[in-house]
Design a protein around this nucleic acid. Sequence first.
DNA 1: TTGTAAGCGTTATCAC
DNA 2: GTGATAACGCTTACAA
Lengths: 444, 444
Amino acid sequence: MRAVSLVPAWGKAGCRRPAGRNSLAVIPSSLGSRPLERLCRCSAVQACSSVITQYRYYTLIASIFCFEYETFDACSRSAGPFSPICAGTLLMARQKARLKDIAAKTGYGTNTVSLALRGSTRISAAARDLIRKAALELDYVPNNIAKSLVSRRSNTVGLILHEITNPILTSAAKEIQLALASRGYGVLFATSNGSFDEELHAIEMFRSRMVDGLLIYPLVHSRLDHLRRLREQNFPVVLLVGVQDSGIDVVGIDEFVGAHDATRHLVDQGHRRIGALVMLQYGTSQKHDGYVAALEAAGLPVDPQIIGSCLNHSIEGGIQTMDSIMHGPDPPTAVFCSSDILALGALRWARIHRRTVPAELAIIGFDDIESASHAVTPLSTINNNVDELARRSVARLLELIDAEGGLPPPRTSLLHGDLVVRESSATDAAAGSTATPTIDTRSS
Amino acid sequence: MRAVSLVPAWGKAGCRRPAGRNSLAVIPSSLGSRPLERLCRCSAVQACSSVITQYRYYTLIASIFCFEYETFDACSRSAGPFSPICAGTLLMARQKARLKDIAAKTGYGTNTVSLALRGSTRISAAARDLIRKAALELDYVPNNIAKSLVSRRSNTVGLILHEITNPILTSAAKEIQLALASRGYGVLFATSNGSFDEELHAIEMFRSRMVDGLLIYPLVHSRLDHLRRLREQNFPVVLLVGVQDSGIDVVGIDEFVGAHDATRHLVDQGHRRIGALVMLQYGTSQKHDGYVAALEAAGLPVDPQIIGSCLNHSIEGGIQTMDSIMHGPDPPTAVFCSSDILALGALRWARIHRRTVPAELAIIGFDDIESASHAVTPLSTINNNVDELARRSVARLLELIDAEGGLPPPRTSLLHGDLVVRESSATDAAAGSTATPTIDTRSS
DNA sequence: TTGTAAGCGTTATCAC
DNA sequence: GTGATAACGCTTACAA
């Protein structure tokens, strides 16, 4: 019993067992008390050993004296006779092959093996092939952790999403991951999950894991100081939201212009009383500002009564917030929603309350998620070019990572989101008149 | 110009610059050719230096002779006079603080610092506080890469999703990430993106990054050999799909039973001609089998004509596949869809072709995503308990990771998905009769 | 209570 | 062409 409980210690950090690597400890039972060398000649042990060897394990013969030794090392250092206490054999977890193992197998040095596997021309073809073959046989997988330690690069970037239920963020995540994978980068991922502390925590976690850079949809567009500080420390960060003058690199949809275009479109459709569903809990937002600007440009009043602030980004949240802006004395005839999910909530609200869309209530969303074009009433929206966003943000991040001698000055790339007019906002969708809208033909 | 191109070599792997760490190289212009010591006394340089010191950088005065030295080291070793070639100052990226830096600052050894920061009782309280303070001042972040190298644990697990547009997978991803983060684990994430090779590639990438374990929604439920092989090598793997007897640990929804329940529900509603939308491109699936079993149990024929195989998991895919199974001579009166997304496609198809749901066509989905309850006709479906899935799969994976002396035998935990009856399948939803259905009241 | 030395798996330098 | 050696930043064993 006691012997078994000692076994797990092998292979643990700090436990030295140069002879124990990839080895099988044969702990014979009922062989009596005898010196180690005699145990090795025991036929049962030898038979076992030859089987073990076939599996590319070394054989390590041992018999653990019950109380005297605390560790296997202490045991194996002892010169005295051993008392067997445990029956049978114990198979150690086979450890991963290292360069050193390939070197031992082929007779070359570790350095030669390293160069050969990386295809250096300084190594002879014969040696290279031999080494490659040995690596394959041993199922060698290079240890990137060790590589990172010396190269000071983890070839990993961190991705923080503030919300994963939003299809736009997840499809961005997908495109980003694929783009990075094709360049040999891994993606460490975290959700800030609606809490700023979690965002900070995720960043801290990423930093301690030595990510080479960070792509982030920040939770609060106005709280970016922690990210600016990272940048000052020469840590590459790219924001995925279209904020202006952040002092950080930005690749994102121009939310102000998008919201402005969407609201303007409602104005152009003849609406004079236009409400909004936005996310305001962390202060103002670009989308809110764009909405307000479009109203002001059209000479329309901005009425807080019909601007609903949603707490969470969901259909349910959209329905509830619609309730709050529609029950007033002068409800809006059109609503700008800062995301398609909220717009689907608004659509649902309209159905529950038997308002026809767009005749009694026009609705426009933001993002152009798949469900938007397949909704009961196909949703007008602002197209969010996710592929472009992923492509450009990854390209910029890698530029920052590869920047030699300090980060270049921050650059803001705002992508334009196209207005897509469908049934939910246009009494006659085909007559869509503003901002060269894309008419979606599938929505008939 | 040339000097600038040399600078990037600092801080690179293999470039030794013991004196260059956290230092600012002042490369003065137009100071003429003079010995280094005279440069140091130059007032412009001194003013610069004092500013630099405020930022906790050391100052390193240098002037690089244009052609003679290839590296900064070679340059600084030289004793001769320098010719300035580059104007201004160059700020080196400040490097992250190490234990050694804290040690140097406090006067303790690195070992003492390491123990102190980890709160060892062997260190005096005074020393501990001093060291903690210094660590804070230097903005010390422990290097997990180095830690991993010695502990042989990365405290990171890999998560592979076969599809990220599926809301079920993303909400699972979120829950999994949060559960793992609370235990101190990071999540490396990848999408297999519909290709088995990408799945293999992602696994390889994860292995080389030394993840401690793997959570995976495999692309093809029947191709699991590569995962079994990992397990044989003592690598912890947990499948997130409810397959039976895989020889690998499983925590997943019982898809067979779920599909069976769903189909059975349609039978109970009086349907005799029940079609299906499934994903069959990689061979049969548990959902398909459950559907078939329910039909057979009810004594109904299984007709390939009304079993549509969707190629991609999308509303569009659902619509197209519906086209193919509905245009036959004897179209189904009810359809079991292997996911809510496909069911939304079916619903959309019904709307396009003016069939009333559920009177002319009953539809049931699988997953219970948010949109299901908010669809035009709220969808009946099988609830996919994502929270439970995340909780249990993470718990099991950590069990495997912490298992000492080899992995325990694989265990299969199938979670039960509850039937949720809404309008899309029940002529009178309130009369839902089978399998203790949950009646969703919001769907009025 | 603290310091010293070795080692985790890899890469870069330099000598042969 | 190939091998020895010293880093990378950290933890552990053991000596002081």
